[in-house]
């Protein structure tokens, strides 16, 4: 009887999971299908992800808008931020994990403190600082503040601490300075952590919205996030134009989706590293 019952429990578990999985995948199916619908079809059959008649109108319309420009801006910012974070976070992480100097633990304490600062409350003052520096409304304003990420430093520090000290000591005995040791001995061993950092930086800067709201106002500097947000807030003129909006959402999701499905374990790992600080 007990085994009968456990089979029943497992069946119920499956049922729940299937329902939940449906709730989690259906919105994306709707997004995918509606992007290929006509406006009338989207309004008439909101529940059916399959278009009555496949149409590329939404994508054509997006190409007419500034969408390609937004995508290019997102790409520029994301690449710059990711490269910057790899350099800055791995250097800082290495210093905190391995280099010996006075003030190191104070810096680490400050870093932990800084990780608690909620990004959303910095919106106004970040604008103030950028304005004061005279870079507001430039690529520099969009990129510079994102170049360092406290969580990234933390991830790298934790990784470097797992690298055996003996490897570095051997290099040092051979006469390599700290920079040589870091560059040609430690970094090549750090590929797994660097890949994680790259993925998390890519995802974070690609999806970033608030910072690009306050660091620029020129429409030519719109990224995908700020650009698509203006689409939604009714700058399209008449009608709902849901296929167009969903096509935009679909396209901006694709790069992250591709990376996610290749490296999903690294994404989930990032959650814990961030959460377990």
């Amino acid at each position: 009887m007990s085994s009968h019952r456990s089979r029943l429990a497992r069946l119920a578990g499956y049922l729940v999971l299937v329902l939940v999985a449906l709730a989690y995948t259906y919105p994306f199916l709707i997004e995918l299908g509606t992007a290929f619908k006509t406006n009338a079809d989207a309004t008439a059959h909101p529940l059916n992800p399959l278009p009555q008649q496949w149409s590329l109108d939404a994508f054509d319309a997006l190409a007419e808008l500034d969408f390609p420009r937004w995508a290019a801006n997102s790409l520029v910012v994301t690449v710059a931020v990711t490269v910057g974070r790899i350099v800055s976070c791995s250097m800082a992480g290495y210093a905190l994990a391995r280099l010996r100097f006075r003030g190191r633990s104070a810096v680490f304490g400050a870093l932990i403190a800084v990780m608690a600062v909620p990004g959303v409350v910095l919106l106004i003052p970040k604008f103030l600082v950028l304005n004061q520096l005279g870079v507001y409304d430039t690529y520099a304003a969009m990129i510079l503040p994102l170049l360092v990420d406290a969580t990234g430093i933390f991830i790298m520090k934790q990784f470097f601490e797992t690298v055996p000290v003996s490897v570095e000591e051997a290099a040092r005995i051979d006469g390599a300075g700290p920079f040589r040791t870091f560059w040609s001995v430690v970094l090549p061993m750090s590929k797994p952590a660097l890949i994680t950092l790259t993925i998390l930086s890519f995802q974070a800067s690609w999806n970033e919205l608030p910072h690009f709201i306050v660091s620029r106002q020129d429409p030519a500097l719109n990224t995908l996030t700020t650009g698509v947000a203006t689409l939604v807030s009714g700058q399209l003129g008449q009608g709902n134009q849901f296929p167009l909006k969903l096509a935009a959402a679909l396209l901006m999701t694709l790069p992250v989706a591709v990376v996610y499905f290749i490296f999903s374990s690294r994404f989930t790992r990032g959650t814990y590293e961030g959460a377990d600080k």
Partner: peptide, 11 residues
């Protein structure tokens, strides 16, 4: 969780 909040909001 990894998808853009903007894209999800649009959906």
């Amino acid at each position: 969780t990894v998808t853009s909040s903007v894209a999800i909001s649009v959906v």
